[in-house]
Design a protein around this nucleic acid. Structure first.
Lengths: 148, 148
DNA sequence: ATACAATAATTGTATATACAAATGTATTTT
DNA sequence: AAAATACATTTGTATATACAATTATTGTAT
């Protein structure tokens, strides 16, 4: 992935800016790859992320603030994201009996079923994205990312 | 930046997935920092990017496909992005006389003026984002990103 | 017990983005 | 020259996301 070629510039980009642009380019590539995988299932990457969180609860319902805390990309309208999952039959939502301000969200069995299929496809995509990166390099990336 | 802490999970995340999640977390952080800087100017990161491309043209007008080629984050509706810039008085657009299918987009002097101020603020943000990263590490990141 | 503040989620509204279809123009083929 | 194709952009429509205001419920202070 060559930055200058992709954004078609002849100018020398300062190392700092170049790194950030590079960062964004790789991130876009990853996001597009994942979005492509998820498209047939009609869920966004964020919706997929929430489904995984819900499954990870092992039956214990999640409320909105829990979801927000755990989402990789936090966002300012989880209510509507969950609306979409419910509409698709992948989740359900009831008012929390012990605290009627809260809400209890669960993944449905249909949601689990579809998520399982998505998982397989997503793992394949992950492998493909990282096919040129060695374990040592993955560790390097992680420790560099820690500095941000 | 600790992945497990941020997404509040106790489970061990496989190195591959962890790297990608880490990637996204850092990217989100960068995007938020930049968005915060740009918010007072009422432009999005993509709009800022297009303004910079327009300025980089040095008076030579750009058409939509040129913009699309050079944008860091390509998107499927550059017409409307440019609409917004025109609405804000930062750009103008005329039909290309030599090929009436095309369009000629230029940055206005108002656009240049505001962009100059944004640049200063954005550079500060960039510095702050990278404050813990050495030159050597920046080079490492770039060469690792090349593998994607 | 009432008033006030804090918490949790929802709703309204605006902008951003994705994608397909449509429009208008230029080029190529027959 | 007319028809077909290719090109460049725009428009319609749907979804996604951001942010502020609102609603409903609970907790706290007087």
């Amino acid at each position: 992935m060559n930055v200058e070629k992709i954004i078609k510039t002849e100018k020398e980009i300062p190392l700092e800016s170049r790194t950030i642009i590079h960062f964004m380019l790789v991130n876009n590539k990853i996001n597009e790859a994942f979005a492509d995988i998820l498209k047939p299932y009609d869920v966004s990457l964020q919706q997929f992320n929430v489904l995984r969180i819900l499954r990870g609860q092992n039956g214990k319902p999640a409320n909105l603030s829990t979801l927000n805390e755990r989402m990789v990309t936090k966002m300012s309208n989880t209510t509507r994201l969950v609306d979409k999952l419910i509409l698709k039959g992948f989740a359900n939502r009831i008012v929390c009996p012990s605290n009627r301000r809260k809400v209890e969200i669960n993944i449905t069995s249909e949601g689990k079923k579809v998520l399982k299929r998505m998982d397989t496809a997503m793992q394949k995509a992950e492998k493909s994205i990282l096919k040129n990166i060695s374990t040592k390099e993955l560790e390097q990336l992680n420790s560099l990312f820690n500095k941000f």
